[in-house]
């Protein structure tokens, strides 16, 4: 009973905050409305006894929104950070598409014959879920991790305007390096 009330309360908060993202007229409010929505979803995951996944979802999303707010304010045209703005555009297509997807998913959730529970939940749910998702693919995932990091580093290197020759001179011998932004350890 209590769990049901908490579930519905959190679900309403998650959806209402999600709607608020497109209603409010301020970029900061939109960003943090999304953060509130994610926090409610994280709490819902905790309610499913997946404490680790729930707490980590809240951690990641709050951190992400804090950084995203900076970039949104920095990069968006028409400086919507300083004047009232509208988060929506292409309204007819967007409303059509989102209504269609919602009807599809909701009818699927309501009409599908849900399976009966077999057996009992394992002792450590997070561990069991991790094994179920990863399981034998752990080696693949362990390899993909470094590849992803390498991709990020390579992307930044390719995107950066300055190369090591700009920093260290044509013979790479200039010390200290010529940086537009001085660092804290005097390199």
């Amino acid at each position: 009973m209590v769990a049901a009330i908490v579930f519905w309360g959190l679900a309403v908060v998650a959806v209402a905050a999600g709607v608020a993202v497109f209603v409010v007229d301020s970029m900061a409010r939109a960003t943090y409305a999304l953060a509130v929505s994610f926090i409610a979803v994280g709490a819902l995951i905790i309610l499913l006894q997946q404490s680790y996944l729930g707490v980590i979802t809240i951690l990641m999303m709050v951190m992400e929104m804090a950084v995203m707010a900076v970039y949104m304010v920095m990069f968006m045209g028409m400086n919507p950070a300083l004047m009232p703005m509208d988060m929506t555009h292409g309204k007819k297509t967007a409303i059509g598409a989102s209504t269609g997807v919602f009807v599809l998913l909701a009818s699927g959730a309501l009409l599908i014959p849900w399976p009966e529970r077999r057996g009992v939940p394992p002792e450590d749910l997070t561990n069991a879920l991790g094994l179920e998702i990863m399981g034998e693919k752990m080696l693949v995932m362990a390899v993909v991790g470094p590849v992803m990091v390498a991709t990020i580093v390579a992307g930044v290197v390719l995107a950066a305007g300055r190369t090591r020759y700009d920093r260290l001179g044509d013979d790479l011998r200039r010390r200290p390096a010529d940086d537009p932004q001085p660092g804290g350890i005097g390199r």
């Binding site: 953060a35 404490s51 680790y52 707490v55 951690l59 709050v62 804090a66």
Partner: peptide, 18 residues
């Protein structure tokens, strides 16, 4: 007595960013 107490601490300190 949270089974992920350390992560909880970390999550709360990340809230300070916001």
């Amino acid at each position: 007595d949270l089974d992920v107490g350390v992560v909880w601490f970390n999550t709360v300190d990340v809230m300070v960013w916001a």
